[in-house]
Write a protein that binds this DNA or RNA. Sequence first.
DNA 1: CTGAAAGCGCTAACAT
DNA 2: ATGTTAGCGCTTTCAG
Lengths: 334, 334
Amino acid sequence: MNIKDVARIANVSITTVSRVLNNKPEGISPEKRKYVLKIIEETEYRPNGLARGLVTKRTSTIGLMISDISNPFYPHIARGVEDAAETNNYNVVLCNTYWKPDRERHYISVLKEKGVDGIILAISNGKNIDYLNEIIDGTIPIVLFDEPTIRDDVYCVCVDNKKGGYMATNHLIEYGHQRIACLIGPNTTLTSEERLEGYKQALAEANIEYDPNIVMYGGYSEETGIKYMNQIIDEKINVTAVFAASDEIAIGVYKAIKSHGYRIPDDFSVTGFDDVSTRLIEPSLTEIVQPTYEMGQKAFELMFKLLNNVKPRKKTVIFEPDLIVRNSTRRINY
Amino acid sequence: MNIKDVARIANVSITTVSRVLNNKPEGISPEKRKYVLKIIEETEYRPNGLARGLVTKRTSTIGLMISDISNPFYPHIARGVEDAAETNNYNVVLCNTYWKPDRERHYISVLKEKGVDGIILAISNGKNIDYLNEIIDGTIPIVLFDEPTIRDDVYCVCVDNKKGGYMATNHLIEYGHQRIACLIGPNTTLTSEERLEGYKQALAEANIEYDPNIVMYGGYSEETGIKYMNQIIDEKINVTAVFAASDEIAIGVYKAIKSHGYRIPDDFSVTGFDDVSTRLIEPSLTEIVQPTYEMGQKAFELMFKLLNNVKPRKKTVIFEPDLIVRNSTRRINY
DNA sequence: CTGAAAGCGCTAACAT
DNA sequence: ATGTTAGCGCTTTCAG
């Protein structure tokens, strides 16, 4: 069943059918429109999206490229994006890049071939300007996600990482901690860099000397937390608190502390970042929370504006992080 | 840049370009092929998937319809599907149905319009034959997921739920439990029904009388676990162990038990089902594990076979569940 | 208000 | 081995 069949059955031209299909106000009498609508209903005709897309250059489909949907950070984001997309009659094709630039390149190319209208992308490396320029080359609308960017002409939604780092560190300082280890993320990401900035600022404001020896870079993973926390304990590094730059790192920190027979928060205070995978951890984790679902929605909304040529007020939407104090941090007398 | 441009630049017909594009072995000399390839490379030409799909009736895209990607059960599955799809040059469009039949209908219709080659679907209600027949009407290849089905001509991948229910219950019986509450899922799903079957069978084999008073239906949610476990404790229902038919239910059970000041496994033994969101729970949860990632992969592979007209040996692929004994169950003397 | 016809970019049947 | 041509199912311009 195609537009031609419907036209034949309704005794009109395909143009007329197309007009009612697309709700064009002009050029068709109310009765005729109603009649055609009836035929469409009866025949259960659905227009062919490929043919339509071929001429309109629109597919009502966007790409969502993230590192890995099984990383607990992403499902809520994906749901936010998908919900907002569905509301606006868009679909989303999901791509896992595993932080590999080659996979990012590949998917972008494939998505373009398939004619997606735009791409929401959690980019692997927002610090490398050459890579950024290669990816964002103007051939397709792109909204960056999570990882901020050094190019200020790029649409982007993320959280205020610096503020988050500041809030977490400051909380620990207010609780009397002075020796605060910083288990930061990979040194290739701006996200980590910003969180570290916040950490530094909080220290500076409290006149605590910044000690690079207790700042440790690594992946946003449990292993990172285990490795460095073990090191801190084994080498008896003077530290009373740990700012973990992600939940996964914090989980690793917990494990290392517990495996040594130490207690949280009695022996070490710990803060996390993200609030996605720690619902069941004990003691409950004090951490920086970002509104992932809303950020996903916002990313789509930004994309939607782009696609409809409405200039968003701001290219970059920055969400406020929140500090949730739970039971993994305690006051100490230094 | 389209096929015409490339043909012009290479001084050949568009047919020739099409032939090299699609790796057709016949009808082109090696040198010419190489030359055209070079032009394609230089011009960075990428074929238009919409135009291609319009004629081939294939898009190398499938739909993945699940209830909710933020339910921890699905991300690994989605990753399995997407990984297998990517390996075979397919893309997947993600749809959250929230278990709503209307949304399922809607998405199926939309996906068809967009020309996806097939749909992998975790259906909301595999028990309702009319609904099933409406959804699986032969107009598009469908592979059912997770929820088994009463129609045996339908392609389907799921876990042996009955066996899982049996294994969990049997484990508790072997540990000396006789009064085992069964917090089963929604009574609309075959999944629940099968898990309950397994529970019953284990009881029967051990000559323990089946007591419907301690079998409770509810959603696969934390709330269900809390509600019924509270009830069991408050009403002093004689129960020493709980078989929770999902992790979320088990989490609720934990909370209810702890909030009353009771201990696991000292006061109650608890088993879960799924192994997806309980990594951090304490004490660690004894549970039935299903290989979600592999099941996702398998679902795509089945779909891939369907799309390439190779008859899979079996329409239904049933994965074996596994019992992982951790610290939430203990032996008792009854 | 309505319709004929061109064309989106590609594949495939058919010539040569 | 290569090219010509007829669609795929739709939107859109233009004519009436």
